[in-house]
Design a protein around this nucleic acid. Structure first.
Ligand SMILES: NC(=O)c1ccc[n+]([C@@H]2O[C@H](COP(=O)([O-])OP(=O)(O)OC[C@H]3O[C@@H](n4cnc5c(N)ncnc54)[C@H](O)[C@@H]3O)[C@@H](O)[C@H]2O)c1
Ligand SMILES: NC(=O)c1ccc[n+]([C@@H]2O[C@H](COP(=O)([O-])OP(=O)(O)OC[C@H]3O[C@@H](n4cnc5c(N)ncnc54)[C@H](O)[C@@H]3O)[C@@H](O)[C@H]2O)c1
Lengths: 216, 216
DNA sequence: AATATTTAAAGAAAATTTTCTTTATAAGAA
DNA sequence: TTCTTATAAAGAAAATTTTCTTTAAATATT
């Protein structure tokens, strides 16, 4: 129940920084930090202090002059704002190398998502269990979505079946797809797609490296 | 040998989009496309046509009125500009779940990087071979960097050793680190670090999903 | 108690990035 | 040939995002 006078949309760069703050704060909390100021966070993460203040203000938290933020409160506000405290159930499609890594990963660290089950078509994979996640046959996908009321799908199939599997997912009432394949998915407007391209990160790295080489 | 009158720095969003174009174009080429226009690319990738033109112009390519770009030429310019045609040799540190996925991945599809070897400290991993990449003991890292003259490191260790291993990497003359751990690395200014946070992508997905739920 | 200092918060300014507009041009149609 | 149309390219404008500036408040110090 938020009462915003003007609907200020959150900048996407802010959304992307918030989990970085959260991760850092969790680490600082374990080290016994109780109060933490924006300039301190900014110093650690090499960001502008006022940007940190602006970013954090979106969560609704109030800081205290000369003290900063209470770290527990701040973590709570961030988790609440990001939806990381809710259990965001997800199904994974394509339990291969990358898919299995994600399954193993979320077992230990919380990624904001909870992978309830994985789906594949390969007999080698079906029946396997990685990090407490069972791999089921893709045929059971629709039924399981209904049963567990899941609305998030993680797509880690080979690229050539990505479009087809994405369509199957939404036919089964999946509303949001985290697409880790390089395929550009063509889906209805109302479906939320988050593409994660490893290429893009490599490209930035190579460009920066090239720039630095030229300078020397 | 570039002769730029004014040094226009490439916008980072542009760098991130270029590999997406490249990937799409390679697919279109296989489907027999010879010439392709910016509006066509934009339509496929849901981008603004003029943005596509601007982005592509950074590679130095010249398009033709009413025709667009020659797809072979365009792919060549993009690969050249991104450095994807050179062999960018890299070493991977931490041959676990994610590391192995990356090793297996680059075997098939070119990621712009060539992982020459992986390094680990676990006896279980050392001696293994994933997608033509051998896993060696971390003790050999320094020697191998010298021998093969590698300047890019991929960091996929557990978070708690990430800082330490990053420092070891740069002590061995690694110049650029692709950091896939959630750790925020504190390294000298001259070292290039590209952080890839899965959290950030999940955060954007969850926010978009939340927004859409509210609207309904 | 008085003062100096650190900080969050809000707003302004600057920088960056995207979108819009205009222009030139070449291809295809009439 | 002439006209229409689609497009790249360049520049202007708009939107977004970051950085800077000011203010006010509360803490810690003297
Ligand atoms: N491995 C990486 O590091 C990496 C990095 C970036 C992107 N990707 C992308 O992630 C995707 C998966 O990569 P990967 O290395 O895990 O490949 P993979 O071949 O190891 O895994 C793909 C899995 O999908 C399954 N599958 C195939 N068709 C299916 C279908 N119709 N329905 C359900 N499951 C199906 C396969 O059986 C397999 O288990 C690819 O699109 C790849 O481009 C991978
Ligand atoms: N698995 C994923 O999907 C995923 C996603 C996002 C981020 N990450 C991050 O990637 C990193 C690796 O994740 P993972 O799931 O592959 O973990 P993992 O435990 O499977 O792999 C880590 C590997 O690093 C090795 N290692 C440990 N200490 C080392 C050292 N000092 N030097 C060299 N190697 C060492 C281990 O032996 C192991 O093989 C983690 O930081 C994780 O947070 C993983």
């Amino acid at each position: 129940m938020q009462k915003d006078k003007k609907i200020k949309p959150v900048p996407e760069p802010t959304i992307k920084r918030l989990p970085v703050y959260l991760h850092y704060l969790n680490k600082a909390r374990l080290e016994g930090v109780i109060n933490i100021s924006a300039p301190t966070i900014a110093g650690e993460l090499k960001l502008d202090p006022t940007q940190v203040v602006k970013d954090l203000s979106f969560t609704g938290i109030k800081g205290r002059t000369k003290i900063g933020y209470n770290i527990y409160e701040l973590i709570h506000y961030l988790e609440e704002y990001l939806g990381f405290n809710k259990t965001n159930n997800a199904f994974l499609v394509g339990a291969g190398n990358l898919g299995s890594a994600l399954m193993a990963y979320q077992a230990g660290q919380s990624l904001g998502l909870k992978i309830l089950a994985a789906f594949d078509i390969s007999a080698d994979r079906i029946g396997e269990k990685t990090g407490q996640v069972n791999v089921l046959h893709m045929n059971n996908f629709g039924e399981m979505v209904k049963r567990l009321n899941v609305s998030i799908g993680i797509l880690t199939t080979p690229e050539h079946v990505a479009q087809e599997m994405a369509e199957k997912m939404i036919a089964c009432r999946i509303k949001a797809i985290w697409n880790l394949t390089p395929a550009y998915l063509k889906l209805p407007e109302n479906i939320i797609v988050q593409n994660t391209s490893m290429y893009s990160n490599v490209a930035v790295l190579l460009k920066r490296l090239e720039e630095s080489d030229v300078v020397i």
